[in-house]
Design a protein around this nucleic acid. Sequence first.
RNA 1: GGAAGUUUAGCUCAGCUGGGAGAGCAUUUGCCUUACAAGCAAAGGGUCAUAGGUUCGAGUCCUAUAACUUCCACCA
Length: 873
Amino acid sequence: MKEMHTTYDPKDFEDRLYADWMKHNCFRAEIDPKKVPFTIMMPPPNITGQLHMGHAMDETMQDTVARFKRMQGYSVLWLPGTDHASLATEHKIVEALREEGTTKESLGREEFLRRAWAWKEKYGGRIIEQLKKLGSSCDWSRLAFTMDARCSRAVREAFVNLYHKGLVYRGSRIINWCPDCRTALSDEEVEHTEDAGNFWHFAYPVKDSEEKLVVATTRPETMLGDTAVAVHPGDKRYAGLVGKTVILPLVGREIPIVADEYVDPAFGTGAVKITPSHDPNDFEVGLRHNLPMIRVMNDDGTMNENAGEFCGLDRYEARKAVVAAMKERGLLVKIEPHTHNVGHCHRCHSAVEPLVSKQWFVKMAPLAKPAIEAVVKNKTKFTPDRFAKIYFNWLENIRDWCISRQLWWGHRIPVWYCEDCGETICEKEDPSVCPKCGSAHLKQEEDCLDTWFSSALWPFSTLGWPEKTPDLDYFYPTDVLVTGYDIIPFWVMRMMFSGIEHTEKVPFRDVLIHGLVRDEKGKKMSKSAGNGIDPLEIIEKYGADSLRLSLLTGVAPGNDTRFTTAKVEWARNFINKLWNASRFVLMNAEGAEAELNKRKFTPADRWIISRLMATIREVTLSLQKYDLGIAADKLTDFVWSDFCDWYVELTKPALYGDDPEKKRGALGVLLFVLDSVLRLLHPFIPFVTEEIYGYLPGKRGRIITADYPRYDSKLSYKKEAAAFEGIIGLIKAVRAIKVSVNCPPAKKVNLYLETEAKALITANRNSILRLAGASDIGFVESGAEAGEKTVSQVTEIAHIFIPLGELVNLEEERARLRKELDRVIGEIARAEGKLSNKSFVAKAPKKLVDDERAKREKYLDMKERIEHQLESL
RNA sequence: GGAAGUUUAGCUCAGCUGGGAGAGCAUUUGCCUUACAAGCAAAGGGUCAUAGGUUCGAGUCCUAUAACUUCCACCA
């Protein structure tokens, strides 16, 4: 037998074991008709990403589930991959180019993409290597990338299909435009913040009249694109003006005054300037009233030629200039401070400009409906289920999805335009001539697809769809998706409708939602705030197992959690405990295998095995419900309290004694429980359990491929275990008595017990002596036999008397007994209270009532004993 | 303006289908007891946010209220 080191040091084995697992293909998923598949698709991290605590938790949860299912005998596929992250990556490369003093335009598309791929090759694998440090047991042979040939093929197929069904269309609509990234964004990519601004009141002169119509705006520069002023149809103040026109100041354009329900007469001045090209509401009003759409802004946020004298100014300069010009003309009525919601680009955080632009959209209504139904009908279940409400909320209010991006890094939209006849061509194969006019002058669409368009196909594109691959057939639909609540709208929802649309199946049966990992103070960890904690540093210091365990314990599904090093230290301490308990067992086993001999079980053996069985049951059930935190709590509690603190101590008399039969019996149980515990813990702390498993005598193979322990009703020993709790209670009571009289722990005491459980106590005599710090046990008929100066305590199975001579202070002992008496009297009152309630006796389950009666009897007996003892003092 | 969540011991948080309040950390006391001081033993500490309701019985279910958090939303 190899010697285990005296202290737990993860550095000794984590890397070695990971390499060993890889070398022996332990993570590889095989198509095995005899097994049931279990599939998890890893949410692909961005190639620009660095591993952060959020990933660490997400990956740990997936790995824990994957390892659990693998041990349960499923053919587990956990498929890893990365996302090309169109905007984020392009942003990085553009920045790098800027530092070189060049631009993507001067580089050209082809060269830019070459640079992007090179960047991907260099940095894209970084996060993958970091995932391995955590112990992630994914099938690296199936590593995917959203822009690899497979996924790209799926994107093409999906887009073309949607196009021909009319679910993808091109149109001029109001979209969110980021002037810095110079691309359109989807609604989901816009973050709204409350920004302080102003409400500028402008007077527009009514044509052929002295009257002026006052409008209020938060974006004065857009007035240059006004094509109407709207008032509410029922607004008496403006009733006479509807149908007339105003002369738009600074521009001189004559624009109509229209009536529209959209206007809230109570807000502002009750008159709204309408700029259909630069505001979503105004766009709608413009459609209703057939207003012209005049764009006054360029893609880079500067004003265009329609802005007249303001042409070329940046939007914010233009804002100032417009206000100044209006003031100069005496048309600025007033300025009110006003805070309002402003959209910002989620990538660069500059203010988003709503503007009309020709873009590609996915028609959402027909896709949303079946996606909602699938969850209503429980084909896909959210855990916790409250997230279904959030999902519904999104899908029920969804608008068409803008999928075109004015970017180069990504899937180029597979659409060609005929330069001769104007035909739009969208087919699965690249066209060479126009099918309508035969022209060879075809030009491909310049735009790329939103990153999330390819992510939406992830559960099946990675398995080879649209090909009917064996993988797709065996592993799809997937079983569980593990992800944070923050990307339900970006990803979960889109995978749902995409999966249903393209494969006619829901992409996953369960969605396990987790919360955010926050810092010690509860703040969101972020790069800009500088409060992020690097998981790799924690692994370096404490090991991956400690990090993993700390991320899973004390966390309820879907709730945010705070990351504290105190918790990691707790986890490290727990693992150290496991390490040392294992070391203890193995030292005593001396390399010998030991058998479990049921006929030779001691009461303590039956107790720990009973507790083990209960733990197996609870942990397995919790894991099946994805209650990882509860499972981890139950397990660590069993290992530390029941196994280490009690059972290991209980076996010491046998191990150190000279009866080889007893020693062999104890070792059999110790090894059995240790082996079970290691396997139970393996999904949570894979490295250390694999390492210790290797030291177990007579073991073959690895724990990663071992069976998960199963509950065995023949080993449940419920009655025996309950009886044994009495021994534990007895030991605890003696310890407490010794502390209460300041008796040094090393000083052995004599125990006099008045009890009916003589057999049970005798059977555990040595354990009691050792754990309670006693020299002898004597059975008595009454406390008087124990002598004069005694301290006493009533427990479940015995009335304890300890003669402590000089240590006994009669006054203190009386006080202690009185306090105990008060407690017991309280208990009796509580039981009486319940039992005297006729409704309780009549309606509560019989067992409960019986239990209550039994308790009353027990406490009455205790009361009598304590009173008797008090009198005798 | 909608929606969701949170409120339990000094701190951070568990508490599944309603049946005598739990853990870790921190605190106090005593222990280097031949696996472990990254440890052992003992102890203190909670009208489970508030007010009602349902129930024999509520931390748990229902309704309001308050505070905090997050997400969504076009009032110019």
